[in-house]
Each structure stands twice: as C-alpha cells, then as structure tokens.
Amino acid sequence: MRHVFSVAIGPVGFRLGSDWRGPVAALERLYASYPGPQDGIADFTVRLFADRPWRRIFRPKVMIGGDFVLPEAAPLSLEHGLLAAEMAMNLQMALGQRRYLLLHASAVERNGKALVMTGLSGAGKSTLAALLMTRGWRLMGDEFALLDPATGLIHAFPRLISLKNEAIGVMQGAAPDGMFGPLLADTPKGAIRHLVPDERSVAAMLEPARPALILFPTFGHDAATREVAPSEVFVRLTQASTNYVALAERGFTALTRLVAETPARAIDYPDTESAIAQVEALWASL
C-alpha cells in the first residue's frame, strides 16, 4: 500500500496501510513515542482504502479493511481518517484477539495494582480513566483491558484516548499540557478528539498489574456505592468481553479466577469530581 504505519500498543503489534498520507501522518505524530511491533511483525493488519480508484481524490471515502472486518462497516470521510484508523485497530482486537481475555473496560494502575472500570457506553469509564491519569495513576487503557489467562494479570492497551463531546473540554482543562489530536467534528459519534496517554503510561505499557478492584460506574445519579454479587460480576464481564467464548476453557478459568479474587463495586456519580473522590475512598478501603 502507498502509506504504511506500524506501532505496538501494549503487547499487540499493528500494521496499517493507507491509500492516503493524511491518516498516516496523524498517527505518526500522535504515536511518536510508541515502539514498533516486536520483531517487525504485527499481530494485525488494517487497511484504509478507496473502494474506487477515483475515490482517492474525488470526495474521498475511507473504507476500512483488514484481517478481521464487519461487512456492514460504513465508510468515513477522509477528514475522519484518524478515527477510521483507530476504529479499524479496535475492530481487530474485538474480533481477532486470542491471547488475552478482552474486557471492554478502562484500566488504571497504582502501586502495581489495577483498577478496572467497565460499563455501558456513556458511563464515563474513558473520561474517568483519563482524569485519574492526570492525578497520579498510570493509564493502562481507556477502551480495552487485557486479562492474561496464564497469570491472571491485566495487561495495558494504552491506545490514544478517545474523547467524545463534553469530555473533550473536561480533559483540555485537566491536561493542559497534553498532546491532542485534531478535533474531529460531526463524526457518527459526535465530536471526537484524541489525547495521547502521558509519557509515563506509554513508557510502562509492557508492565502488567494485578487486578485489585472492578468498578461499574453509572453517571447521572446521586453519589452511591454498592457491592455487586460475584455472579452478577461474572455475567457482566462475559457481556463486556468480545472473545470470552473464543478463549474457551482459558476464558472460563481466567474469568472465574478474576471474579473470585477481585472485589467489585458499582458506583453512581453526579459529576466527575465526585467520581474521583468515590474511587479514591474505595481504593483506600481495600
């Protein structure tokens, strides 16, 4: 392909080919501090391409291809090429990851222990993780946490933090020195802006951590904390995993172990400041 970009995010290597320079240039800038894939061999290949040759130039539309694809994936405009690249890489993880149990969750680490936050979209797990990163935690990932069936440890997957709508302003305030991507207006998900994880999170991305707390945050209610029954945690985590079934016995063993060994709480929060306070209080009580 005309333009090529390779990167390692945590323990996973990607190779991206593009018909256009634009998305590759954006990726090169934002992922500048990341290493390349181990041995120069990526785990996953993704492609951004024009479905017709003239679509490279005339009203360019970015099609998403790669090792694993969804037939119904709609093309994006070239201005949103960076988003297309990130979506394509996420898709490989969601459909193709077989080494780690993939949890649709954000994760942060302190003192070698991981806090895993999962929940429905809009629960704020991504924003919470990004905010915790600005307050002394290491960001392990804002979208996926990788549970290693062999060790029970969480591996980091610190891709670019994907901020949507109001979260963009929140993080520009909280991380004024952060490196941000271009503002992508009017994407199918609203406004999106990417934030590069801080230097320390990238430098430590190959260090796994022992899961210490599983959190199910819900935004929009008065502050409250409740325990979650282990069987409910088990069910919610199977639903939050795209590859639980594909991992077969390894997935079952990893997940039952995680549930048995890790306390879980649900928190309701009215605003992010309260959420941070609730998280810190819970963490201190472990």
Binding site: S231, F234, Y244, V245, F252
Partner: peptide, 22 residues
C-alpha cells in the same frame, strides 16, 4: 466439566461444547 461455585449460582464450563452455563 469444570464446576466453579460463585455464590448462589454455579458456573459450569463444559469442555465438550465449549459452553459456559450459569
């Protein structure tokens, strides 16, 4: 079978089918 009692529910992994039953 791998039987893992969780609380009032028991998770059972069935090796022959690859299915998990709660």
């Amino acid at each position: 079978l791998i039987v893992a009692p969780i609380d009032v529910l028991t998770a059972i992994y069935h090796r022959a089918s690859g299915q998990t039953h709660l």
